[in-house]
Simulated assay, not measured.
Amino acid sequence: MRPVPAKILEGKENEVFDTKVVNSPYFSTLFHFHEECQINYVVESEGTRMIGDSIESFSHDDLTLVGSNIPHVWHNTEKYFIETENNSVAKSITLFFHPEKVLNILAQFGNTKKMADFFQLSKRCMQFTGKAKSEVKPLLIQLADEENVLLRLSLLSKILHILSQTKDYHLLTGAGYTNTYHLKDNDRMDIILKYIFSNFTKEIELKLVADMIHMNKQSFCRYFKSRTQKTFVEFVNEVRIGHACKLLTNIDYRVCNLAYDCGFNSLSNFNKFFKKAKGLSPREYRMKYTTSPLSIKVS
């Protein structure tokens, strides 16, 4: 899936920010990037989100900040594309803002170093939790409906102030991540990622995926790592671990077959990779992220 450059505020050159409300059967699967920073609140939906080199499952009530020119996509689970009768919907509110234009405005009133530092940190991309998320959600909803220019500016200021001051977040991308995608990549990465996101619970053969974009295995491995900064196996396993984390936080889910439900061919490989990726065993992860952990056997 190649990320394409998007012009979010095209035709609105004098505008510093804008909002977008999505209420559709599923989110767009276009992998893209743009100069504007993006604060995204998922009201309702679930699937896999890829931001830079971060691959995680997402669900409702997810609040993230994507920095300038960082490739990203929210890809819904398969049911959103094939089970139209189940009334699954994808709802989100997104605030786009141009960081340089915001800083130029703020510079008229004082020192902008702290905000500039925050915008630089946003290139690592951030997921917000706790009090900060609770405070920002109603402001985003209000901003999406507000038409008065002064009130909109006030709401933007409040949102940026809260997010730039809080410690209720974790960084999503690696410290050394850079956007290495090229516009000449055509549609090869689109084919690869859509196939992975749709088939990660099953065995995925490297040769099959390489054949899909007419490469031999060696060339494909070099190509894939140059674009994602991960080996193919690492990438697929991170998608699977993200799905496992979602299952573990559902206290109604019985985890005796967790490894196999996520596409791993052995329990020992699953436990080993999960601990490496999350720094916790599956048991410890569930106890940390649920208030009423079930008695489970995962190792």
Rank of each mutant, 00 (worst) to 15 (best):
L121K: 13
E238F: 11
E135C: 13
M115C: 06
L160C: 03
L183Q: 06
V136D: 02
H161D: 08
V239Q: 04
I204K: 13
L163T: 09
F118G: 14
K207W: 07
V136C: 04
P138L: 10
K194Q: 08
P138D: 08
N216M: 01
L160K: 03
A116E: 15
E234I: 11
Y181I: 01
A144K: 05
S226R: 00
K131Q: 01
G110F: 06
L106Y: 12
I105G: 07
D145T: 02
E205V: 06
I159M: 13
Q142N: 07
L139H: 12
N104Q: 14
P138N: 13
K225I: 02
E203N: 12
T231R: 09
D190V: 13
E146V: 09
F200H: 15
E135T: 11
K194S: 07
Q127E: 13
D187L: 14
N179M: 12
R124M: 11
T173L: 06
R222Q: 00
T201M: 15
L206H: 06
M189H: 02
L121N: 03
H214S: 05
S164C: 11
D211A: 03
F118C: 14
L106T: 05
I105K: 15
F224G: 02
T228G: 06
Q218Y: 05
L172I: 07
L106D: 03
Q229S: 12
L206V: 04
G174S: 15
E147R: 13
L140Q: 10
K184G: 10
E234Q: 15
A144V: 01
A210G: 04
V236N: 08
R227K: 14
N216P: 04
T231A: 00
H161R: 10
T173G: 04
L106Q: 08
L171M: 09
S154A: 05
K114F: 04
A132C: 01
P138S: 11
T228I: 07
E135A: 15
L183T: 00
M189Y: 04
F119D: 06
G174Y: 13
A116M: 12
E146D: 00
T112N: 09
D145E: 04
V149H: 11
I192S: 03
Q142H: 08
A107C: 13
T201K: 15
L172F: 06
L121H: 05
K137R: 11
Q218D: 04
T166I: 06
L153W: 15
V149K: 14
Q165Y: 11
M189L: 13
C125L: 05
S122N: 08
I204V: 15
L183K: 08
Q229D: 05
I204E: 06
A175Y: 12
R124T: 10
K230N: 09
N104P: 12
C125E: 02
Y195Q: 06
Y181G: 01
I159A: 11
N216D: 00
F235P: 10
E238L: 14
I141M: 14
